[in-house]
Each structure stands twice: as C-alpha cells, then as structure tokens.
Computed example of a mutant assay.
Amino acid sequence: MAAQIHPSAYVDPRARLGEQVIIGPQAFVDADVVIGDGTHLMHGAHVGRWTTLGRNNRIFPGAVIGHEPQDLGYKGEESQTLIGDANVFREGVTVHRGNRPGTQTLIGDNNYFMVNSHVAHNCVLGNHIILVNGALLAGHVEIGDRAIISGNCQVHQFVRIGAFAMLRGGSGAAKDVPPFCINDGLNWIRAINTVGLKRNGYTPDRVRAIKEAFKVIFRSGLGLEAALDKVQGELRVTEDVQEMLEFIRASKRGIGSGRGSSRE
C-alpha cells in the first residue's frame, strides 16, 4: 500500500517513502530523507534533511529527528542521521545529525526514547536502549545494547556507556560506565545491574562471575591497573568479564569510581 500523507503535511519531492508509511497532519519531511516501510509520523513530527529511517518506527507529536546539530562550527554541510527499525521517539524528542561533512549520528533497532530526551550529533546507539524522560546525551556519546539512561540523566560528550549498564535517575556520567554497571550521582559506579541482567536471561552463574570481577575492580581499593590484572590472573574470566575488562582498558576518558569519587 502506498504512503498515506495528510493534506496539511509537507513532504519534499526529493524524499523517498516506503510502503504503508503514514505522514500525519502538519508533519514535515525534508529533502533527501528516506523513510522505510510502515513508519508513522504523527502530527507535527519533523524529519530533517539527510535522515534515513528504517521500518516501523513511530515518531510522536513534536519530535524532531535529524535536524542541524547544536554546534557553532556546523555550517550546513551534508551530514546524516541513520536510524534502524522499530524505534519509538516520543513527544519532544530531539535527535541531531553529524556535525561535520560526511559524519553521522547512528541509532540501531528497537530503542525507546521517552519525552524530551535528546541525542546530540555523532552519537552511536545500539539496540533495545531506553532513554527516559529528560535524558540528555551530548555529542559523540556511545551507548551499548540494552542500556537504560534514566530520567534527567546527563551524559558528557565522548562518554561510552556499556551494554546492560544503567544510569540512575538524575545521575551524571562524565566518565565511561562499564557494561553491566549502575552509575549513580556523578561518576559513581555503584553496583551491578543485577535486576536488568536477570530480566534478560543471565544465569546466576554468569551474574556471579560479573559480581566477582566488580568487587575487585571497584571495591578492593587497588589501583585500576592492579585490579584489572588481578581479575585477569586470579578470577574466572568469562565472556562477560572479558567484555568488562576490554571496555575499561579501551577507555580514553577514564571510568567512574567505586568509591564515590572520580578515579584520577
């Protein structure tokens, strides 16, 4: 079935719409936009230039997807917003495209962006992520699969949030948050996201191995390198534990502290 476009909507002739796309009243679709089959733009939704939306996305009223980045150095050059399938962008969500020519903001599949959450330029998001109301991602942030960024959280530019990590409501991350961990306050790696892991089918044995590594890294009082070496040399290094170790060792901003203050 061809796209359904409300008479009050604007769709640029250079946009390409898939089958069963619905464009609601007063929605706006800019030039060079590609919208996949089954995607629904509700009234007042806006899709900016050079945006690609996959299949079965839902864009709620007042959401703005793929508009210019909030970067004073951006001069209107071609950059992109590339979004996968089955994402939900609730009211007032903003997602900005890349801030330099040829760069991209990338969002995977099955993510849920709640009211007034923000994804800045050049962010890279995986799959099954939740941004709760008012969550703010600065530029170049990376978020792993099934992470949860709770209400009114703030993530500094270039920070990485690992898979299955969680930022508690109102918290801030100016340093990386390893996979499976809970961030609280400012850069405080408080605990393992045990509930989230169990909900996603992690067995008690898998969770136990992650907890054992967590205790050494964040509770032993050892320096970071010594703690990582101890985990590598003395504990069970499961696939999950190896993921934590590799994430931490790859960090450029440093990781949060288990002692309530940032590591030096």
Rank of each mutant, 00 (worst) to 15 (best):
D145K: 07
P178Y: 13
I161M: 09
R160A: 12
D176F: 04
S150R: 05
I143N: 10
Q154E: 06
S171Q: 06
T105H: 10
I107Q: 01
N152V: 04
N116M: 12
S150G: 09
N127T: 14
L137E: 01
R190Q: 14
P179V: 06
F164A: 00
G84C: 09
N116R: 06
N122Q: 11
A135Q: 02
F113K: 04
D109W: 11
G185R: 15
I189P: 10
R100G: 05
G172I: 03
C153Q: 02
H128R: 15
L125Y: 05
K175A: 13
G108H: 12
L125D: 00
S171I: 00
Q157D: 09
T105S: 07
T81M: 01
Q80L: 15
I149P: 03
G139A: 10
C123A: 13
D176P: 12
N183D: 08
A165H: 11
H121M: 12
G139P: 02
V159W: 05
V88Q: 13
A163H: 07
V95L: 09
V124A: 13
I161K: 06
N99H: 05
L186E: 12
R146D: 01
A173W: 08
E142C: 11
G108K: 09
F89H: 04
H96C: 05
V159C: 03
V93W: 03
V95Q: 03
L186W: 06
G102M: 13
L106R: 15
V93I: 01
A147I: 08
R146H: 15
R160L: 13
P178R: 13
T103F: 00
V119Y: 00
N187H: 10
H121E: 06
C153S: 09
F89L: 02
N111V: 13
I182G: 02
D85L: 14
A138L: 10
A174I: 12
S117W: 04
E78S: 12
Q154D: 02
G92Q: 04
G102E: 12
H140Y: 13
T105K: 11
G126L: 09
I143T: 11
C153T: 15
